[in-house]
Design a protein around this nucleic acid. Sequence first.
DNA 1: AAAAAGCATTGATTCTGATCAATCCTTTTA
DNA 2: TAAAAGGATTGATCAGAATCAATGCTTTTT
Lengths: 192, 192
Amino acid sequence: MYEEYFRSFNKKVPLTQEEEALIKTYLTPKKLRKKQYLLQEGDVCKSFAFIEKGALKSYSVDDAGNEYIIQFGIEGWFISDLYSFITGEPATYNIDAIEDSELVLISKSANEELLRILPKYETFTRLNITGAYLAMQKRLTSIISSPLEERYENFITLYPDIVQRVPQHMIASYMGLTPETLSRIRRRISTK
Amino acid sequence: MYEEYFRSFNKKVPLTQEEEALIKTYLTPKKLRKKQYLLQEGDVCKSFAFIEKGALKSYSVDDAGNEYIIQFGIEGWFISDLYSFITGEPATYNIDAIEDSELVLISKSANEELLRILPKYETFTRLNITGAYLAMQKRLTSIISSPLEERYENFITLYPDIVQRVPQHMIASYMGLTPETLSRIRRRISTK
DNA sequence: AAAAAGCATTGATTCTGATCAATCCTTTTA
DNA sequence: TAAAAGGATTGATCAGAATCAATGCTTTTT
């Protein structure tokens, strides 16, 4: 249990056996079936999740019922509504499982205590959030400045696993497109 | 000197006099004239900057010479090409001053040493990057899911100071629009 | 095994924002 | 103070993505 989590942790910040054991006491495992919610808009996000196995998405829904995928997560990634987690306000995003998944949950109190007692945990957190920030900045830059074809090719090279595992209409949503448009882009790319 | 920087720091993580004095030895002041570069694409980003006074923008330029503004920064904000700063690779963004500005620079080595010797500095860093992450996520969400008018009204309420101080065509660029389109959106909003 | 649901593709049409171009105003610069 | 540069607005046209609609295929459910 928690293999991926500690693999990821040790890769960024090496831990002793004792530290691992300590951290373990703050973690909770959770399994989700495909389509099951981890978080629903309006609820407060009480914990954030590391993905051991599976795939999830976070998304918002507008008044007309359209889904806008904010983020995908697969093995080795964190997923949560960070704003709700930090502030305690109701979540503006939904999170659910695209595949059967296994998660490691860290509750808000666990997180706070780990930050307080274990400097390495803060370092791990800092590195993770920095990585997430850089990834999102790249995405935003490409949305603003790159033509669609390039953006899709970019996505494919950046996240080949996700392309394999996730239906196209979700990728379209992630890119801010309709499924029809993405389908046409794919055809343009393949016929050249 | 460094008033804003330490105001911001103390607000997030209270410091003792000694700690402030220690940190000061790692900081460098810098003034920029309007239009002056802080960083040019292709150079390595050797330091990141806290803005004491003034306004800057970071932006990328495509092959056709079009500018895409990635971020604005005013008093109390950090600005840098974080990816280049961390990896040491050539910067993909330019940063220059929209107004005469006063900055506090933290070099890469200063940053690393402060992270190592002063846990409060790491906490400050973590909180800053988390805040930047959340702000960018909001921006991305609104790009993907909100109609243009709403996005602009959002921008106005979120950054009223920037609307005052920055020419509209830059705000258009930040929103991924042409100046003409932004002008038309403004008219639509005002005539209702 | 049949029915239903989910998904990708394609075509026709509509609509929104980009582009091209001109004008007016304000701020810098010479 | 005149000239130039920078910026905002408006109009006309064009291009690209959304929308609406239909079809065929695959996977899930019954």
